[in-house]
C-alpha cells in the first residue's frame, strides 16, 4: 500500500500587511513553515502506515526553498519526498495546482490513498484537495475528523458536516482532507532532522511529468487571476447610543437585524 500526503510551505504568520503605496505584500522578516493543517494529514498517514505497513510519500509544489518542509516531513516519518518545481508552474491557481500535484502523484505511481490538510493558512481555500480527487478521478471525503478504520481495502471515517456527522466508507484509491485534531501531531527530534537532511528529495519539473502541455501548468493553466490585493478596512468609528432606553433598544435591534444575527428573523 502507498500513501501520499500533500504539504505546502506557508508564511509563519497570518499578520501580513499591504504597503499602501505599492500594493505589495510586506513580508519583511517573515519566516516560513509547514502549513499547520498538513501536520494532521501527515500524522493520520503515519497512523495508517503503522497499522498497514504502507509506504509513505510526501509531495509539495514550490520553489527550492520548499524542500525544508519536505525534510521536516521525512524527519516525522515519511519515507520519500517529491518536489514539483519549475518556473513554468509559477502563477498557478487551484486548477493548475491540483493538476500539477496530480501529475506528481501519477509519477509516484500506484497510490492508494492521498491525504491533505483541510486547508492552508495562506490561501485558506480548502479546494486543492477535492480538486486533486477530481483530476485523478477518485472519490474524496472532506473535513474528516476521525479515522474509524483503515484496512487493506479502504477506510471508514467520520466526516464533519455543518449540523451533522456522517460515517463514510470508501475504497482505495481515494483522497481525504482531514480536520485539525484528528490526531495529535508529533515533533521531529534533532536526530531525526539530521538524518532527514541527508535524504534525497526527488525534484520533478514539467519535462518529467506525464503531461508536457505547458498550457496546463502555472499561469497559462490558471483561469483565475488576482487583480489586486488589499487590506480589509473596518469601520472603526464608534457609535454612541446614549438616548432613552427605548431608542437605544430600537437602534441595537435594527443593528442585529442588519447583521442577520436574530434567529428566525430574515
Amino acid at each position: 500500500m502507498r500513501i501520499v500526503v500533500c504539504i505546502k510551505q506557508v508564511p509563519d504568520t497570518q499578520k501580513v500587511k499591504v504597503d499602501p503605496e505599492t500594493g505589495v505584500l510586506i513580508r519583511n522578516g517573515i519566516d516560513t513553515k509547514m502549513n499547520p493543517y498538513d501536520l494532521y494529514a501527515l500524522e493520520t498517514a503515519l497512523r495508517i502506515k503503522e497499522k498497514t505497513g504502507a509506504e509513505l510519500h510526501v509531495i509539495s509544489m514550490g520553489p527550492d526553498a520548499a524542500k525544508a518542509v519536505l525534510v521536516e516531513a521525512m524527519a516525522l516519518g515519511a519515507d520519500d519526498a517529491w518536489l514539483m518545481s519549475d518556473r513554468r508552474f509559477a502563477g498557478a491557481d487551484v486548477l493548475a495546482t491540483s493538476f500539477t500535484l496530480a501529475q506528481g502523484i501519477k509519477t509516484i505511481g500506484d497510490v492508494d490513498l492521498i491525504l491533505c490538510g483541510k486547508q492552508t493558512t495562506d490561501g485558506d481555500t480548502a479546494q486543492v484537495g477535492p480538486a486533486i480527487g477530481e483530476v485523478l478521478n477518485i472519490p474524496h471525503v472532506s473535513w474528516v475528523r476521525k479515522l474509524i478504520e483503515a484496512d487493506e481495502k479502504g477506510l471508514t471515517v467520520e466526516q464533519e458536516m455543518m449540523d451533522s456527522v456522517a460515517h463514510v466508507r470508501l475504497n482505495y484509491p481515494c483522497l481525504l482532507t482531514v480536520e485539525k485534531g484528528i490526531f495529535e501531531p508529533g515533533l521531529p527530534s534533532y536526530l531525526k532532522m539530521k538524518e532527514a537532511r541527508k535524504k534525497e528529495i526527488h525534484v520533478l519539473n514539467m519535462d518529467k511529468c506525464d503531461c508536457r502541455d505547458a498550457k496546463r501548468y502555472g499561469l497559462s493553466g490558471s483561469p483565475t487571476q488576482v487583480e489586486k490585493i488589499f487590506e480589509p478596512t473596518y469601520d472603526l468609528s464608534s457609535v454612541r447610543l446614549d438616548k432613552t432606553t427605548e431608542e437605544n433598544a430600537q437602534a441595537l435591534f435594527e443593528k442585529f437585524v442588519e447583521l442577520k444575527v436574530i434567529e428566525g428573523g430574515k
Binding site: Q14, V16, T121, G123, V226, E227, I229, F230, E231
Partner: peptide, 13 residues
C-alpha cells in the same frame, strides 16, 4: 479573504 482575513484579494476569471 486570505491569510486568515488579513488580506483581501480581488479575483476575476
Amino acid at each position: 479573504p486570505a491569510f486568515g482575513g488579513n488580506i483581501m484579494a480581488k479575483i476575476i476569471n
